[in-house]
Amino acid sequence: MSTPVFEKIKLIRESERLNKRQFSELTGIAYSSLAGYESGDKKPGVEQIMKILQHPRFTKYTLWFMADQITPEAGQIAPALAHFGPQTTPSSHSDQKTG
């Protein structure tokens, strides 16, 4: 299941520990537009997405943003806060008692 664009933008910003104002200044995207993108009220155009992904700080997220894939060996990762992988993590419980 693909992550919506508005959520991906927010994940990138939060993963880089930037507030909306800082992210807006780095990318050149108006603060009000960014707020609309992150809330899902507005859809960013190609130009706005390119402003984000072409910034040197955010190019590492390009493959994840565009195709929901990562290749760490090529420097393409998902934001630290993004869920990437199985929806649930299986856990095998042992009968060992602790304490």
Rank of each mutant, 00 (worst) to 15 (best):
E14H: 10
G36T: 11
A74L: 14
H93D: 09
E16W: 06
E7L: 03
A30Q: 05
E25C: 05
Q87M: 11
E16H: 14
A30Y: 08
F23V: 14
P56H: 14
I77N: 07
I52F: 03
G99C: 11
M50F: 09
A74M: 09
Q87A: 14
E73S: 12
I29R: 05
H83Y: 07
M1A: 08
G99R: 13
G85K: 01
K43A: 09
M1W: 02
S91Y: 13
A78I: 04
T59S: 05
G40D: 02
E38I: 04
L11Q: 10
Y31H: 06
L11S: 05
L81R: 10
R21E: 09
L81M: 06
R17I: 11
G99V: 08
Q22G: 11
A30K: 06
I12L: 01
P86Q: 14
G36F: 12
T59K: 12
R17Y: 07
G99Q: 11
G36S: 11
G85T: 04
S94T: 13
I52N: 03
I77V: 15
R13T: 04
G45I: 12
L34C: 09
D68T: 01
P90K: 13
Q76S: 07
F23R: 10
S94M: 08
T62R: 13
H93L: 15
R13H: 07
E7Q: 05
I77E: 09
G28N: 03
T88E: 14
T89K: 11
V46T: 05
K60H: 02
T59W: 03
P72R: 10
A74N: 08
S39G: 05
K51T: 01
G85W: 01
S33G: 04
P56Q: 13
E16L: 00
H55L: 05
P4V: 00
G28D: 05
S24C: 10
Q54W: 11
K51N: 03
G99Y: 12
T98M: 07
G40K: 04
K60W: 01
